[in-house]
Amino acid sequence: MMEFLSNFWVQLVIKLLVAALLVPLVGMVIGFAEMKLSAKMQSRVGPYFAGGRWGWAQLIADGVKFFQKEDLVPAEADRPVYKFAPVLVLVSAVAILVPIPLGPSVVGRDLDLGVFYVLAVSSLSTIGVLMAGWSSANKYSLMGGLRAAGQLIAYELPLILAVVGAVIMAGTMSLSGIVNAQATWFSEHGWGLGMPFVLVQFVGFAVFMIASLAELARIPFDMPIAESELVMGYITEYSGFRFLFFFLAEFANMFSLSAIAATLFLGGYWAPGLSERMLNILGPGILFAKIGILVFLMIWFRWTFPRFREDQLQTIAWKWLVPISLANILATGVIKVIV
């Protein structure tokens, strides 16, 4: 059995299946959570009838609906680019999951440059968004695409700089290594206690979360798809399952960015007092619980705050988040050298 499981191709198929099933599943769970929580925040019930109880089947019904719809391509559109853009956005959301450890030995592939890989792949979706905006041959799409480009490039910087603090603390760019560093932080003292980096890297964590909200183009950073101004921004012309891809990619991206934040700052799969064997079994659950908390935060922010103006949005990125995260790197580096 173990021999069969350790075959490279068998492992590859299992990993691909897990990733292919996890992303739609997680997208639906988060989408449903958002529907229900936003309803409660507005004194409503939310989805109620689909599936018989609590409306649990609402997003399955929605998914089926999207597949029934016509896949429209505008006459003036750049067809291959238009068709490929949603795939690229979704693929980047899936590919982020590769190096994220679910347990000490449960990991898609532990990359030495895991952090670098994750950030590089996450910026692929920027290109997808720009492609969608440009190829739709629609002024709203184009405006949305350009706003998205301006915003995503501006917030890519603080996102990356915020991570550097955690990388300096751990002394490695491998995500497994960073979790390990958090789990064994006080091990030389023999206390058996670890330290999630959020305790000392709180600034980095806050900057990362704000920047990832902006990367997701969610309210309060939803200038690129601002419904009241741009119809639906770069998604305007999409329909049917390509629209579903964008929809799913948003929730999948929420999941993967929260997974990165949980791994870098909240200790990932690690929880105090568990042996390595236990962590391999319970690790995914612990990681998902931490992701759940962060996803709830994102939903909470979305249904509380109004949209930022374009100039406010750029001001936050360039005048606040970038200097703050640079100062954070400096402080972390100095303390690391002294201690």
């Binding site: 929580l37 309803a39 925040m41 922010f301 509380t304 705050f305």
Partner: peptide, 15 residues
């Protein structure tokens, strides 16, 4: 901002 967050949280919990 904290006030706004408190309002939505309060509404959610009591709903």
């Amino acid at each position: 901002m904290a006030k706004g967050l408190a309002v939505t949280m309060k509404t959610m919990l009591r709903t």
